[in-house]
């Protein structure tokens, strides 16, 4: 059989292609970096937690203080996420669909919790509502306890997590414009009908994405919560705080067992996030006015 010379075009390199060696090197660097800084620590958490057997793991999780920490974490997230859901949708709606004075100030303010160190944001609340704070005396008079109590933890959690949903929705809603809402209104829909039948379906994936991220942060927040919590066992400890206490007491199995819950949450979050991303891609057509011909 005669071997024909390859047509020249096949031998030509595509401009952005690198040689095999370079590709391999880049992939190796990226993967080892991931393994070193993300993979090994994640493995370590579960290894330490389960290292002494399932029995000890279960015992650690069944400890009443651990339960109370889990409960508090769930409460804080259960309040912070819906609160920021409402806030996020309202703000994104206002920013994307209306022109008003102070719009850029509002956009900047939304990012404040990202810019400020969580410890500082916790401290702000102590300075405002703590015993020596601005509103401290008034709160004491009325026998309301915010700092070193559950309400304080919820407050800082709301503060720290409030950019997530708004940030996710603003660019999405800006890109979608207000044509569809205007069409709905001109067809006789009320504001409420327009919101539920047109706006919400258009933003639902972005919204879910924001909720997932917001929830992950709400449950995992350490710094801000640490400042306002007071670390009272069984009362004002969230999961991250409880992990720290256990660790400081050299109770490694228990510390890692509880920490594994957070790690699990992270994995579930990643999974959910990937599913949403796939859904969004499949729904395609995220472009304004649906112009994908």
């Amino acid at each position: 059989m005669m071997s024909l010379p390859q047509p020249l075009i096949n031998n030509r390199k595509i401009a952005t292609h690198e040689s095999k060696a370079v590709t391999l090197l880049l992939i190796t660097v990226a993967l080892s970096y991931l393994l070193l800084f993300l993979g090994i620590p994640l493995f370590a958490v579960f290894y330490e937690a389960l290292g002494k057997g399932w029995a000890l793991y279960w015992t650690a999780l069944q400890d009443p203080d651990a339960w109370s920490a889990i409960e508090l974490t769930l409460i804080a997230a259960a309040i912070a996420v819906p609160a920021n859901l409402v806030f996020g949708v309202a703000t994104a709606w206002a920013i994307a669909k209306f022109e008003f004075r102070g719009k850029s100030v509002l956009i900047t303010l939304i990012d404040l919790p990202f810019a400020v160190s969580p410890v500082v944001s916790g401290l702000i609340y102590v300075l405002l509502f703590g015993a020596q704070g601005w509103f401290g005396p008034w709160l004491q008079e009325h026998d309301i306890k915010l700092i070193f109590a559950v309400p304080g933890i919820v407050l800082v959690t709301v503060f720290v997590t409030f950019p997530f949903i708004a940030r996710e929705l603003i660019p999405l809603m800006q890109a979608q414009g207000k044509d569809e809402e205007e069409a709905a209104v001109s067809l006789g829909a009320s504001g409420w009908q327009t919101f539920w039948r047109v706006t919400v379906p258009n933003i639902k994936w972005g919204l879910l994405y924001g909720v997932i991220l917001c929830n992950a942060r709400a449950m995992g927040e350490f710094g801000a919560v640490s400042v306002v919590s007071g670390h009272i066992r069984g009362m004002t400890n969230t999961i991250p705080l409880h992990v720290e206490i256990l660790y400081n007491e050299y109770n490694f199995v228990a510390a890692f067992s509880v920490a594994s819950l957070l790690a699990l949450l992270a994995l579930v979050t990643l999974l959910a996030k990937s599913i949403v991303e796939i859904k969004v891609k499949r729904n395609g057509n995220r472009l304004p006015h649906g112009e994908t011909e």
């Binding site: 044509d179 569809e180 205007e182 069409a183 709905a184 209104v185 001109s186 067809l187 006789g188 829909a189 009320s190 039948r197 047109v198 379906p201 258009n202 057509n285 304004p288 006015h289 649906g290 112009e291």
Partner: peptide, 17 residues
């Protein structure tokens, strides 16, 4: 707009996607 009984057709269609 909703009470004017006016049909509006937009340049970019504005169909509910």
């Amino acid at each position: 707009a909703r009470e004017r009984n006016v049909g509006f057709v937009f340049q970019h269609y504005a169909l509910f996607r």
